[in-house]
Each structure stands twice: as C-alpha cells, then as structure tokens.
C-alpha cells in the first residue's frame, strides 16, 4: 500500500506527540530498552572477546613431536611423510636441533646467548611442529604421532585447552540464551507500558475506526512511537558501552601485555549498529503488539 508523504508526516508528528503526551510511560519504556541493551551489549563484548581469546590460543596450539636421538634421516623422512598425509593435519614443519636451539635462545631474549656454546653438544632433539586442521583434534593427532617408534615424545598444551573449550562453550550458550531472554522480556515490558498508555487512548482508537480510519492508519503512529522509544532508549547504553569499552581496552593494553582485547575500531561500531537495530525492532514490535487488540472495532 502506497502511503502519501503528507500522511507519513502526519504519522510522524503523531508518534512524537504520543511520546511527549505520555511522558512517564515513554520514559519507563525507554528505560526498559536501555537496561536490556546494556546487558545485551556487555554480553556481546564478552562474547566477542572470548572468541578472540580462543582464536589467540588456538593459533598457538601446535604439537611438538620430538624424534629419538638415534632416529636416522630415512626414519625421520618416513614419519614426516606419514604425518603430512594425515587427514587432520593442517601443516607440518621439520625443525632440526640447530633451529630448535635458535628458537630456544630467541625465546630467552638477551640471556639466550649463553647457550651458544651448547651448539656442539646440542641436547635438543630434531622435531616436527604440527598444526591440526581443527584445534579440537589436537589431542588425537598428538597421540597418533606419539605412537610412531621414531618419536620419543610429544608436547602440546593439553590441559588448559580442554578446560578452555568447555568454558567458552558455556559462555557462548549462556550468553546467547540470556540475550534472547532479555530481548523477549523487553518486548513484553514495552508492549505493556505502551498498552497502559493505550488504555487511555482506547476511545480515540475507536473514534478513528468509526470515522473510517484503516488499521494501518491507526497503527502507523504507534509504529513511529515504538521506533522512537527504541532509538532514544539506545542512546545512553550505546554511548556508555562505547566509552566504557574503549576505556577498558586501553587499560588492558597498558596493564596486561600478554592479552589484548579486540580493538574498539571497527568492532564497537558494528556492535552499536546491531544494538540500535535490535532496540528499534524491539520498540516497534512492542508497540505493535500493544495496539493489536484495540483495533477490533
């Protein structure tokens, strides 16, 4: 159905007027949206950062498989070929004991140089550095590689990894459930607060219908009103979350060098956009739910 522009202007004006006329109720609805957005937004940041944490750790998940000291070149070669052709292996690098020492010395920083004199009598093993296709496959691959007779031992961050996966899965599920629950709650809250204001507008809706207003004509101002409640209700939480997160990010950056949060830019804008959209939709949905039953005249 095509709506003329002046009609649209009229609906917009009415929507604004309704918000002003029902000052406290509008304020209550906006507060409901705002609180919901604060929590949803905080969870969104939490989820984004847990994912980021997992990614950081997952990228570090490598298996170091050390050869027996007496394994000769052809034995090493055949293990390498076998590992390379394994379905769950993403990438294998051969690192002989010389390189191993370099890596070790580098990891020790400036103190590392004292180990240079170990090079002749290098106690390290030749090794394979393996990455699994899926970090969750790491343990299985490590075990299979360890079963090779030319391999002395394997190493990977086994214990933390398992725990971390459990924790992050819980965070994702819990966060998702909480977000959905909150969205429903606020739709309900908004539709109820708007319904309270509509009760006093029930007669007006009846008059509108009796002089020949279509349902969409009656609904449209409520649509605008709901969208505005969502829009205005989103301002404070979005501003608060944006500032809060930026502050937290730089605090973490300065104080905790081994883990950084996800950079605010552009993530914060994406989440803000998403929150704004959710907020407006929640407002519209709530307002439309509340008019529905008064239209039957």
């Amino acid at each position: 159905m095509a709506i003329k522009r002046k009609t649209l202007t009229r609906h917009g004006r009415e929507g604004f007027k309704n918000i002003r006329r029902n000052g406290w109720m509008s304020f209550a609805s906006m507060s409901a949206v705002a609180i919901m957005l604060f929590v949803v937004g905080a969870f969104a940041f939490l989820i984004v950062n847990t994912n980021h944490l997992i990614d950081t750790i997952e990228n570090d998940v490598e298996i170091r498989a050390f050869f027996e000291h007496d394994a000769d070149a052809s034995e090493q070669e055949s293990v390498l070929e076998e590992v390379e052709s394994h379905d769950s292996v993403e990438n294998v690098v051969y690192r002989d004991r010389d390189e191993g020492l370099d890596v070790f010395m580098e990891s020790m920083g400036s103190d590392g140089e004292v180990f240079e004199n170990l090079r002749e009598e290098n106690p390290l093993n030749d090794a394979l550095i393996i990455q699994a296709t899926d970090p969750q496959m790491t343990a299985a691959v490590a075990e299979e590689v360890n079963a090779q007779s030319a391999i002395e031992s394997v190493e990977y961050g086994e214990s933390i990894l398992g725990q971390l996966f459990t924790v992050t899965n819980y965070v994702r599920i819990l966060g998702g459930a909480l977000v959905i629950g909150l969205i429903f709650t606020s739709v309900f809250l908004i539709s109820n607060t708007i319904k309270l204001t509509i009760l006093s507008r029930k007669d007006e809706i009846q008059i509108m219908k009796l002089v020949g207003a279509t349902n969409s004509f009656v609904r449209f101002p409520f649509f605008i009103e709901g969208a505005l409640i969502g829009l205005i209700g989103a301002i404070i939480p979005i501003a608060g979350l944006t500032v809060g997160y930026s502050y937290l990010y730089s605090f973490m950056y300065d104080q905790v060098p081994f883990f950084t949060f996800v950079e605010p830019n552009p993530m914060i804008w994406q989440i803000s956009g998403l929150l704004l959209l959710v907020s407006i939709l929640v407002g519209i949905f709530g307002s439309q739910m509340s008019v529905r039953k008064f239209l039957k005249v």
Partner: peptide, 16 residues
Amino acid sequence: PYLRRKIGVVFQDFKL
C-alpha cells in the same frame, strides 16, 4: 473503513 467514510455517524456522547 471505506464503507464508514460514506456514512456519517453522530452519537449521544459526541465521541470527539
């Protein structure tokens, strides 16, 4: 609604 636009109605309680 289009039917109602062709009929004017007046009530005892005005409904303004």
